[in-house]
Design a protein around this nucleic acid. Structure first.
Length: 678
DNA sequence: ATTAGTACCTTTTTT
DNA sequence: AGGTACTAAT
């Protein structure tokens, strides 16, 4: 094994000889290094790489781990090593064993489509829907939460609609709406079946159920999977455990996690699940890593203080092996714009005067939305950056338009796809599209549809739509070609529909879509696997993560990331945005201690990304500008309220504040020049 | 009766 | 950036 300096405990973890292991490891103590080292170790010991499955929460960390394993081994020893998210792993299994899982020609639907399906259901079941004051999105949340936590409907209504309250009044209300919600959710399931739709949770459930109920299935997979290496184990939820459990008898589990970094409870994860490991996994051991190799002690002091303030006891105090360094800086700013400018100037100063490249800077935000002004300033100041987190590539409206055409060819019963594809065209709205769809659903098969689609719709639109359908069907063996043809036939209309930002923002995505399509052997694969693919922003332009596609000219860029997407990341210099009252913790959930503590862990994850320099910004006006449902609340929950002064160095923005240039409005220009009216 | 356009609104976090 | 609710246009 090359370039791996492991300490004694890490070495013990990597070379573990028992059956199942949980490595409990604090931030920066070498979790990722353990997984990478373990995979490399197993391969060197002669385990076939294709029988090792690495499971992570994001595609990016899966790719990164696999790349690092490859880099640490010679030749192409790790060529067939598998790293993926739970969801794409399940999708791959379903694709590889269509008979086992009984799914073919299905469509994986993203959260937007889920909502569309639910809205259709609420329209169909208007009586039940009117009887409850729950929005379709909430119904989706209830459904998904129930499945992810494997709780019954009553409890998930309680959790998602009534914030977990258990008083009598709440119970009565739940009793009243429960039957109606049940009818709606069952109708949703029915609709999914009709449309051959598989939602994200279904991917896991299909595989899990099969394996749990069918010994033959377990036998088949036992030849395929010998080692499961699971990252961020503290964030696995009951559904994921439901999926993993049957693998206990066929594979060795190697899990790494840290309860203090559990930040996915909104998806049903429970930070306590790492404590259950020994109970749930027979013949298992736990190893603890506690020496931090990432950060200087000052950064860890602040992080340690934060979780010591928690009423929960994480039994954790990180000690740096690197010694002392610079004190974290708390920067007070009076606007988001000032905050963005401060960071930009600070980075430029580091770049030009301190010899730090852009890539050694990491900016962390709680939400994607919040980084918009920062991105604008970076573009203006020509600072190259990438963003992690946010919308998926295939979720952008203009991409969905083109993909909807491919979807309906792949799956004739895909009503959501048809609705999008048909209403895309001028003169066809929801009503007409609905009428066409009921005709379309009568077609026997795609060939029948191809022959009669134009007549079913009629007119020039019918011809156009029929032509596109036929073209895609002809090219269904060549995904890239199918995309190219479809795009060229839709381009004019797309350019018109998105005329406001077509040239600057959207047009350039289509070559990316073509390249993405080139990675898949069939349209079906594109719209199941591809939909799970992440996009990132490179200098403001979306490109795909984790594939060769995006290896752009610019290698050196600042990373802007959500905290959730930043797990496992680290950087020399870190900026944590907007650590202000009502944000940490969020003012939306002050009545739920669990949510407050989850926010604390989010901040903890953010702080512990920094190696040498940590800047925490705070908006001094936030009390006045943040709209909250609990107005009038004091800041007593604010995490930094009682921050000991010696842990940070407080400062205001040291850079000159430059106001944005006044934008000239047309009425300031005299437009009556040059015409002689005499 | 339908569709197109516009003005506001509202954003956790991820698969 | 996208959705919704309203209004204008066909």
């Amino acid at each position: 094994m090359k370039n791996h300096i492991l300490n004694e405990k890490q070495k013990k973890a990597v070379e573990f000889e028992g059956e199942h292991l949980l490595v409990l490891a604090g931030a920066g103590t070498g979790k990722t290094r353990c997984i990478v080292g373990r995979a490399a170790y197993l391969i060197e010991k002669g385990v076939q790489p294709e029988k090792i499955q690495i499971l992570t929460f994001t595609k990016r960390s899966a790719n990164e781990i696999v790349e690092r394993v490859k880099a640490s081994l010679t030749d192409n020893q790790a060529q067939s090593l598998n790293g993926s998210t739970f969801h794409s792993w399940c999708n791959q299994l379903i694709v590889r064993y269509p008979n086992l899982f009984g799914a073919a020609s299905y469509t994986v639907i993203d959260p937007d489509d889920q909502l569309s399906v639910m809205k259709m259901v609420c329209g169909d079941q208007i009586l039940e829907y009117k009887g409850i004051r729950i929005k379709p999105q909430q119904l989706i949340d209830i459904y998904s939460y129930g499945r992810n936590t494997r709780q019954n409907l009553t409890n998930s209504i309680r959790e998602k609609v009534f914030k977990g309250k258990t008083d009598e009044e709440t119970n009565d209300e739940i009793d009243i709406i429960r039957p109606k919600v049940e009818i709606l959710l069952k109708a949703y399931q029915q609709k999914k079946g009709e449309g051959r739709y598989i939602d994200y949770d279904d991917l896991l459930l299909i595989v899990a159920n099969r394996l749990r109920n069918d010994e033959e299935a377990r036998k088949i997979l036992s030849h395929q999977v010998k080692h499961l290496l699971i990252d961020e184990f503290q964030d696995t939820n009951p559904l994921q455990w439901f999926l993993l459990e049957p693998f206990l008898e066929i594979a060795n589990f190697y899990c790494v996690g840290d309860d203090a970094q559990s930040i996915y409870s909104f998806r049903g994860a429970d930070y306590k699940n790492v404590h259950l490991f020994k109970e749930r996994v027979p013949n298992s051991e736990i190893l603890i890593l506690d020496k931090n190799y990432r950060s200087t002690q000052e950064i860890l002091d602040l992080s340690n203080w934060l979780i010591e303030e928690s009423p929960l006891d994480y039994k954790k105090k990180l000690v740096s092996s690197r010694g002392e360094g610079m004190k974290p800086k708390l920067i007070n700013v009076s606007s988001q714009w000032e905050e963005a400018n401060f960071i930009a100037e600070n980075i430029l100063e580091n770049f030009t005067e301190n010899n730090k490249n852009f890539a050694s800077h990491l900016i962390l935000s709680k939400s994607t939305y919040y980084t918009k002004p920062l991105q604008a300033v970076f573009i203006q100041k020509k600072i190259p950056y990438v963003t992690y987190g946010g919308r998926k590539f295939m979720e952008a409206a203009h991409i969905k338009d083109v993909v909807s055409a491919l979807r309906v060819v792949n799956n004739l019963y895909d009503e959501i796809g048809w609705m999008r594809f048909l209403t895309f065209w001028d003169g066809i709205g929801e009503i007409k599209a609905g009428k066409y769809i009921s005709k379309i659903l009568e077609f026997k098969d795609p060939l029948d549809c191809a022959q009669n689609l134009d007549d079913a719709i009629g007119g020039p639109e019918g011809e156009k739509i029929g032509d596109i359908y036929n073209t895609i069907l002809l090219n269904s063996g060549n995904v890239k070609r199918a995309i190219q043809e479809t795009y060229s036939k839709m381009e004019l209309s797309l350019a018109f529909k998105y005329r406001k930002d077509w040239e600057e923002k959207r047009k350039s995505d289509f070559p990316v879509l073509e390249m993405l399509g080139d990675n898949y052997a069939s349209i079906g694969q594109l719209i199941s696997e591809g939909i799970l693919e992440n996009a990132k922003q490179l200098n403001g332009n979306p490109v795909l993560e984790g594939s060769q596609i995006n290896d752009s000219e610019i290698k050196d860029h600042v990373i802007i990331s959500t905290v959730h997407s930043a797990k496992g990341l680290e950087a020399d210099v870190c900026y944590v945005l907007n650590v202000s009252p009502k944000v940490y913790p969020s003012a939306w959930n002050l009545d739920k201690e669990e949510s407050i503590e989850e926010d604390r862990r989010v901040l903890y994850v953010a702080l512990t990304r920094a190696k040498n320099e940590l800047y925490v910004t705070r908006d001094t006006n936030s009390i006045n500008t943040v709209k909250t449902p609990n107005s009038g609340d004091t800041n007593s929950n604010y995490f930094l309220e009682e921050l000991p002064g010696n842990l940070v160095e407080q400062a205001t923005n040291p850079y000159l504040i430059i106001k944005p240039k006044d934008i000239l409005t047309p009425n300031k220009i005299d437009l009556s020049l040059g015409m002689d009216f005499s």
